[in-house]
């Protein structure tokens, strides 16, 4: 299939690409729609990556402005989200690098930077502590523990994990965002997951030895595990 047709088909499938093409064509409402559609997702990823809300918002703003500035050169080659997070990744890594060059300043959990003390932002299914998979922990404490565990990862591992978890990206997309091979992503994620397992296994209750499955929690009926 010729390249042009591939991108046409891609554009047909991905509503985000269609939106971005409207941005490219200077449809004045399209950019606002784009910002609205992606702001929370982008800031969630950036916040976890840089650990500070204000900085995450500054970076997110820069991501959107870059997209706007480069809109004329846009041509759909991959999912739009992949492109967006590639830009975000580059900007965030630069920012972290610059931060390292500045005199070290401890990254306090400030009110604006806190990732932890906003119980209303917990996922809806986390409301009742009875469904927590851990013993004796309140949600807030658990959030702190998990946040700390995430912070033991280096930024590349952290980004891969966040994209995989929050953005539901597969290895190929993560590889594209981070400029790595799929194989490298596989190793990166495996190291990151092993590290998380180390940091968090004390909080896990393993009540039985049932088969883990890669399908969404329905191993009883999953045809792969009859």
């Amino acid at each position: 299939m010729p390249a042009g047709q591939t991108s046409n088909l891609m554009a047909l499938r991905d509503p985000d690409i269609r939106l971005m093409l409207r941005v490219r064509d200077d449809d004045p409402t399209a950019f606002a729609e784009l910002v609205q559609r992606f702001q929370h997702r982008l800031i969630a990823v950036l916040h976890h990556l840089v650990g500070d809300r204000d900085e995450a918002e500054d970076l997110a703003q820069e991501v959107f402005l870059r997209i706007y500035r480069h809109r004329k050169r846009y041509s759909p080659r991959a999912r739009f989200a992949t492109w967006l997070f590639t830009i975000a990744n580059n900007l965030a890594l630069n920012a972290l690098r610059n931060r390292k060059r500045r005199p070290a300043q401890p990254l306090e959990i400030t009110e604006s930077g806190s990732l932890c003390h906003e119980p209303q932002q917990l996922p809806p299914n986390a409301n009742s502590s009875s469904c927590l998979p851990v013993k004796r922990l309140h949600q807030e404490e658990l959030a702190v523990v998990i946040q700390r565990a995430l912070e033991t990862l280096n930024e590349r591992q952290r980004l891969a994990i966040i994209l995989n978890k929050y953005e539901d990206m597969n290895y190929a997309d993560i590889a594209q965002v981070m400029g790595l091979t799929t194989k490298a992503v596989k190793s990166l994620l495996s190291r990151a997951r092993a590290r998380l397992r180390e940091a968090l296994q004390g909080y896990i209750d393993i009540e039985d030895g049932s088969m883990p499955s890669s399908s969404p929690d329905d191993s009883a009926v999953s045809p792969a595990n009859p």
Binding site: A44, A56, A60, N125, L150, K165
Partner: peptide, 15 residues
């Protein structure tokens, strides 16, 4: 399961 724990992290939103 450790990976599933990440679901309990708050998801920061844009202001």
């Amino acid at each position: 399961k450790t990976y599933e724990l990440l679901d309990y992290l708050p998801r920061p939103e844009a202001s």
